[in-house]
Design a protein around this nucleic acid. Structure first.
Lengths: 134, 134
DNA sequence: CTAAACTATAGAGTTAACTTTAAGGCAAGT
DNA sequence: ACTTGCCTTAAAGTTAACTCTATAGTTTAG
């Protein structure tokens, strides 16, 4: 498939896909050149881009992704090193997930407060006094 | 307290604090000027900066934070508008938290795979065949 | 009293991750 | 053949969020 199709299938723009290639996140397993020099992408490219999106969405930088994906490709690191990376990443993401839980708590409190402010200002006031955080 | 103390108490740099001020995230409730023109911060400033950090950590931009905090300060928006914003934010954060859960799943799988690759390559192979995602 | 350490400002520089532009070649419909 | 739209590259531009530099005034420890 050509770049535009891949873009549509992944929700990225063609610009972004070329940019990722320049950054070393795509290689010959993901596309080949045709005679006219157009890139011809394989289904592997879709998987790769979706994986990148997923990890990027939880705060992985492109350079970090490049490193781990490169390892997945070649075998530059020892298995032990990769296991360490994964473990580290897991606790990082767990920490992050907990932060999200905390913020949800704060937001739910804010919501409760605003709603009671609308219906019963006195109750809102007592809510404010209960809460010491924030 | 002066800027350096505030920086230490919040884990930010003095540069960043002044930058936040320039962006409109701090006002006279958070600091006053002394005769020598030095900023003198109140404890409110600590709370404010920690709140900013917390929300920023879950992907809120500074301009978004400025808006909601400004509302918290003055009363520019109707209560209904704020409730809407909070609700929207809640579902956004819930979506994000679920993404984190998913990634944790993927990472745990990667870990399991790598460990079995070390101990029992055949088992690793069968793990690979089980998993269709990624 | 002086040097070090802090404070101030305006404005320039940095980094990541795009995003667009310019200038051209190729392809598909009419 | 012509127009429209897709493809190519290199390079410049953008945005957010800092981060630092230069220059100068203030405070404090020895």
């Amino acid at each position: 498939m050509k770049i535009k199709e891949l873009a549509e299938k992944t929700g990225l723009t063609a610009y972004t896909i070329r940019f990722y290639e320049k950054e070393g996140l795509l290689d010959n397993r993901h596309f080949q050149r045709e005679e006219n020099n157009y890139r011809n992408y394989s289904d592997e490219a879709i998987k790769r881009l979706k994986l990148i999106k997923k990890f990027q969405g939880v705060g992985c930088s492109l350079s970090e992704l490049k490193e781990i994906l490169q390892d997945r490709d070649e075998n530059t690191r020892t298995n032990q090193q990769v296991i360490e990376w994964i473990n580290q990443k897991i606790s990082e993401i767990e920490r992050k997930r907990d932060e999200y839980e905390q913020i949800l708590d704060t937001l739910n409190w804010m919501l409760e407060y605003r709603i009671s402010l609308m219906n019963d200002p006195e109750q809102a006031d007592s809510l404010l006094k209960q809460r010491h955080s924030d």
